[in-house]
């Protein structure tokens, strides 16, 4: 990406600046997933309570997410901006569940 920028700078400065800014904003806006992983010991109702408390979802949604974790081994529980995803991940980890963030599949 840096090489492209230098070459275009020689041709037309204005175009380069707008392209850089648009590329940067696309990169920062790329969504990130908060992923909760299954484990064989955590009671199901505990997972539901933790989702409800941290994300404020309805009982139904929390139960669905818990069942997805249980049956598929993992579930994406929130998607959005990277910094917020990381903060949510920390909250879930503090509550004792296994959780990571990853770039959302396009």
């Amino acid at each position: 990406m840096a090489q492209t920028t230098r070459r275009r700078t020689a041709d037309a400065d204005v175009v380069t600046e707008s392209e850089i800014s648009s590329e940067t904003s696309t990169a920062t806006k790329r969504p990130w997933d908060v992923v909760v992983w299954n484990d064989p010991v955590t009671p199901m109702n505990v997972v539901v309570v933790i989702f409800k408390r941290i994300f404020g979802y309805s009982n139904n949604k929390c139960t669905q997410l818990m069942l997805t974790v249980h049956h598929r081994g993992r579930a994406v529980v929130w998607t959005g901006e990277r910094e917020r995803a990381e903060r949510y991940c920390v909250k879930v980890q503090v509550a004792g569940l296994q959780c990571t963030v990853e770039e959302a599949a396009s």
Binding site: T42, V49, I50, V94, A95, G96, L97, Q98
Partner: peptide
């Protein structure tokens, strides 16, 4: 709850 869950895992 949080601390017991951390301990359990």
């Amino acid at each position: 709850l949080s601390t017991l869950q951390v301990a359990l895992r």
